[in-house]
C-alpha cells in the first residue's frame, strides 16, 4: 500500500485493483468521502464493534464502546478535514487492502464496466468505482441497518444508533431475564474463543449469511444495468454450509492470512 502526497489534509492510500493489480486505486475519492465512510461504518454502532474485531488496533485509537467518544472523534475529523482521523483511516485502508487481496485469490469478485465489488475473508465488502479508480465504499454486511444510518444523519444524534430489533420480546420482566441469560450463554460460548474465532463467528459468517439472505429476494432485473450490487456476490460465493470454521481457516491459509492472528 503506497501513500500519496498530502491531499486535503488526509494522506490517502492506494491499493492494487483486485482484478488488474497493475492499476492502483485510491482509498476513497476525497477526505469528505473518507470521513463519511469512517462515520457510517467504523464509528456507527453496532458495526463499529465488528470493526474492532477486524482491526484490533481500533481499540488503541479510541474507546469503541463509548458513544460520546465516537461522536466527538467524528466531529473532530469533520472539523480537521479528516486529518485527525488519519490513524483510523490507515487501519480501515489496510483492512480494505487485505480483503481485496483475498478476493483476488478466491475470485470472490463481481464486476461490470462501472463497478467492482469484492468480499474478503474478514467479511469486508469493498466497492470500487472503476471509472474514477477509487474505493467507493467498504463495510461489513450484516452488522447494521442502512436505514438507521440515514436516520442518524438526519437526526444528528450522538453515537449513531442503528439497532432495530424485530424479535424484541414483549415488555415484561421475562424479557430482561431472557436477555441476561442470552448474554451469559454468549459469554460462556466466547470465553475461550481466540480473535480468529470471533472474526469468523461474529463477522465473516454473518457477512456471508447476510449477502445470501439479502439476495434471496432481489431479482437481477431490480438492478439498473449500470449497477452491480453486492447481493450478486452470491453467484461467486460458496454456500455457508461449505464455509464452516475449518473451511474458512483453510482459505485464510491459502490467502496467506494465518500469520495475522497467529
Amino acid at each position: 500500500m503506497s501513500v500519496t502526497p498530502e491531499v486535503q489534509n488526509l494522506r490517502f492510500h492506494q491499493i492494487p485493483h483486485p482484478l488488474r493489480p497493475q492499476i492502483h486505486i485510491q482509498v476513497f475519492r476525497d477526505s469528505m468521502s473518507a470521513c463519511q465512510h469512517l462515520r457510517d461504518h467504523l464509528l456507527t454502532a453496532p458495526e463499529c464493534y465488528a470493526w474492532g474485531i477486524v482491526c484490533p488496533e481500533f481499540h488503541e485509537i479510541l474507546d469503541i464502546e463509548n458513544d460520546d467518544t465516537r461522536f466527538y472523534y467524528w466531529e473532530e475529523a469533520k472539523r480537521s478535514n479528516g486529518a485527525s482521523a488519519q490513524l483510523l483511516y490507515d487501519i480501515y485502508s489496510e483492512a480494505i487492502r487485505l480483503n481485496s487481496a483475498d478476493a483476488a485469490i478466491l475470485k470472490w469478485i463481481i464486476t461490470n464496466s462501472y463497478v467492482t465489488i469484492v468480499l474478503g475473508l474478514d467479511g469486508v465488502v469493498v466497492v470500487i468505482n472503476d471509472r474514477l479508480s477509487v474505493v467507493a465504499s467498504a463495510y461489513l454486511p450484516g452488522q447494521g441497518d442502512a436505514r438507521g444510518v440515514q436516520d442518524s444523519r438526519s437526526l444528528g444524534r450522538k453515537g449513531f444508533p442503528r439497532e432495530r430489533p424485530m424479535r424484541n420480546g414483549r415488555p415484561s420482566g421475562r424479557r430482561e431475564a431472557l436477555a441476561e441469560r442470552d448474554r451469559r450463554v454468549m459469554e460462556r460460548r466466547e470465553e475461550n474463543w481466540n480473535l480468529e474465532q470471533k472474526l469468523y463467528y461474529r463477522v465473516f459468517r454473518p457477512a456471508v449469511q447476510y449477502v445470501r439472505r439479502y439476495q434471496r429476494a432481489i431479482p437481477s432485473s431490480a438492478m439498473h444495468s449500470s449497477v452491480v450490487s453486492f447481493e450478486t456476490l452470491k453467484t461467486v460465493l460458496p454456500p455457508v454450509t461449505q464455509l464452516k470454521w475449518e473451511d474458512w481457516q483453510n482459505l485464510r491459509r491459502l490467502c496467506g492470512r494465518e500469520v495475522i492472528y497467529g
Binding site: 430489533p165 424485530m166 424479535r167 424484541n168 420480546g169 414483549r170 415484561s172 421475562r174 424479557r175 431472557l178 441469560r181
Partner: peptide, 10 residues
C-alpha cells in the same frame, strides 16, 4: 424461550 421473544406489536 422463543415465545418470550415474540412481539407482534413491534
Amino acid at each position: 424461550m422463543a415465545l418470550a421473544l415474540l412481539d407482534p406489536t413491534s
